[in-house]
Simulated assay, not measured.
Amino acid sequence: MKQKNMLTWAISAIVYLGLVIGGYTVYAILDSNKNHTDTHTATTNGNEEKESINEQAHNDNHASQRSDGEDSGLSDHVAHSENEVVTNVKYENGLITIDMKDKDQNPPELEISHEKIMHLIIVSADLKEYYHLHPEEKGNGMYTQKFDLSENSYKVFVDIKPKNLAYQVSPIELHVGKGHGEHEGNSLKVDTNLTKTINEKTVELTTTELGINKNVTLSFDTKGITPEPYLGSLGHVVILDDKGEKFVHVHPTSEEKTVFETKFDKPGIYKVWGEFKFDGKVNSYPFVIEVK
């Protein structure tokens, strides 16, 4: 009888142990599956979040490229905090000479912008004389242009696009002769009539609200006459403040319209030159506007 009870106890112990081991095994399997599922879910969500962030970054970058394209048409280069190209301008005996070097005294390599490697803008002290020239490259950072300047004080703007170098278009003083005017004290009068006629060709300027830090549209009505292509577009616009310090070179918003967009970061009086080509000749139409 005693042996029978011991046998029964042994069998019960074995069964109990088997149940414990089996239960633990099932629990472990279920827990493992749960962890695997949780890990898979976390990984998937993490990847989806990462892909979403990457996609948003791509979209933001793409939008930035659309709005700040490689050639936006605006040549004031305001974004650069330093100038890595040093430019000197001289005038003697009807010859304008431009000498430019980078910080290592090497001639910078320039990119072509609107069919020219350099746009040279020259204005007189009273902002009445205006010239848009395209000097020729002579090598070793030297560029020249034959042109007769009358005795006066000028500001010269060398509009270029150096490769891989920061560059900001800044005014360069140029004095021709002994008696010359000064840029300081320049008093421009705002035009009440924004219609100008040059060489029997009339152009009228209309604008959106002239405020600061907002997109401003400049529309030039050429009175039914389509300008001839000039430097890759239907026209060009150069804007200076009344002191001849702030320079903006703007190009049309499309190849088929004489419509331009720009921004003004400060209130004041500005002079606008709209350049359009008719009958093989480029006319520069001057307008004086006020930004409030």
Rank of each mutant, 00 (worst) to 15 (best):
K2N: 10
Q3Y: 10
M6A: 15
A10C: 10
A10L: 12
A10S: 12
I14H: 07
V15E: 04
Y16R: 10
L17C: 11
V20E: 11
Y24I: 08
Y27L: 09
Y27Q: 04
A28G: 10
L30S: 08
N33Y: 13
H36L: 15
D38F: 12
T41A: 02
T44Y: 12
E49Q: 15
E49Y: 14
E49F: 15
A57P: 00
H58K: 13
D60R: 09
R66Y: 06
D68K: 03
S72I: 09
S75H: 09
S75G: 10
D76N: 15
D76R: 04
V78A: 11
H80I: 13
H80D: 14
S81E: 10
V86T: 15
T87S: 04
N88K: 11
I96G: 05
D99H: 15
N106D: 13
P108N: 06
L110F: 02
E111R: 13
E111C: 05
I112K: 14
L120C: 04
I122V: 08
I122R: 00
S124T: 06
A125V: 00
E129V: 03
H132C: 05
E136K: 14
N140H: 13
N140L: 11
N140A: 11
K146W: 00
Y154W: 03
Y154S: 07
Y154P: 05
K155F: 07
V156R: 01
V156S: 06
F157L: 09
V158D: 04
P162I: 01
P162Q: 07
P162V: 01
K163M: 09
N164Q: 11
Q168G: 14
I172K: 07
I172Y: 04
E173Y: 07
H175Y: 12
G177W: 09
E182V: 14
N186G: 04
D191H: 07
K196D: 06
I198D: 00
E200P: 05
T206C: 03
T207V: 07
T208N: 07
E209W: 07
L210T: 09
I212F: 09
V216D: 04
V216S: 10
D221F: 12
G224A: 12
P227E: 12
L231W: 00
I239D: 02
D241L: 09
K243H: 15
K243G: 15
K243C: 13
G244Y: 02
G244H: 05
F247G: 02
F247K: 05
H249W: 02
V250A: 12
H251W: 05
P252Q: 07
P252N: 00
T253G: 05
T253C: 04
K257W: 01
F260A: 04
K263I: 10
K266V: 00
P267H: 05
V272I: 13
G274M: 02
F278M: 03
G280P: 03
Y285P: 08
F287C: 08
F287M: 08
V288E: 00
K292I: 05
